[in-house]
Design a protein around this nucleic acid. Structure first.
Lengths: 140, 140
DNA sequence: CTGTGCATTTACGTTTACGTCAACGTTACT
DNA sequence: AGTAACGTTGACGTAAACGTAAATGCACAG
């Protein structure tokens, strides 16, 4: 037995839990986004790896590329930087926030339009007397 | 002169105005996302084409694929559908709205984290006495 | 010691969303 | 007629994000 008492995962286990393929986890490791421990030759993922993967997946849902996500993850490494590095970091954080703000506007506009469309569709359905599933007595 | 009194554009004009390349416009047409009129052999875009392109670009900023955007644009074609079609349409509109709601949550979580990071970076800068540019009397 | 099963690396295939020529046609000036 | 600017349609190239074998390793049941 594999003695899994500590919230540790194999590639397959973590992949299934997060709804991705093992290939994806290895690919992200290849890209430097993950660096799980090894037990011999095999990858062993812990809770920190899992949390990091969740951040990555969130970034993907937001439409960022893996390169952008890598930059985003770097933002967490605050320690050990010089003052100039911190200033650069601060700029990047704000840039990224700006992107997200624009995205928020796009999102709200789109949601509003979808609401409009939904209303129109509902109206079109009503106009054809389709709401109560059987009433044929529409307004002609 | 090209007699452009009616808000009409050539590929190059519309492309520049929207910050894309002519190739992109032709590519989208190839994918069925656009269908501008032709004047002889040349494409002529009008305001409706322009508006459609803006919707496409917004979809892209939201991280949707061109295929998904195509579906989204189809949502506008409410007329001429049967009741069953309208029901399907309504389902799709709601599905898409759900996706966007999830995206909104992701977005807000990320913005919050970026705010945290920003605070931490600011604190780290302060701790190293970087705000007034010269104060050396940190808490050592 | 021979499978069975999970894991690994290496490498080529695929899809999406264009970029980048190449070869050609049209209009417009000179 | 020359040529420059702008347009067209292929056709091939490319980067990202994996999919999909193929060949190998390692552990343990029988």
């Amino acid at each position: 037995m594999s003695c899994a008492m500590n919230d540790l995962y194999t590639v397959n286990q973590l992949a299934e839990e997060l709804g991705v393929t093992p290939r994806t986890l290895r690919f992200y490791e290849d890209k430097g986004l993950l660096s799980p421990n090894r037990q011999g030759n095999n990858r062993v993922y812990d809770k920190r790896d899992r949390a990091r993967m969740k951040l990555i997946l969130r970034g993907k849902r937001l439409g960022f590329s893996l390169a952008e996500i890598a930059e985003y993850l770097d933002l967490y490494k605050i320690d050990g930087n010089g003052i100039e590095q911190l200033r650069v970091l601060l700029r990047r954080v704000r840039e990224r926030r700006d992107v997200l703000e624009r995205q928020r506007e796009d999102l709200e506009a789109t949601v509003a339009e979808l609401a409009d469309i939904e209303d129109q569709v509902a109206a079109a359905l009503a106009e054809r007397g389709a709401a109560p599933v059987e009433g044929q007595g529409g307004p002609g």
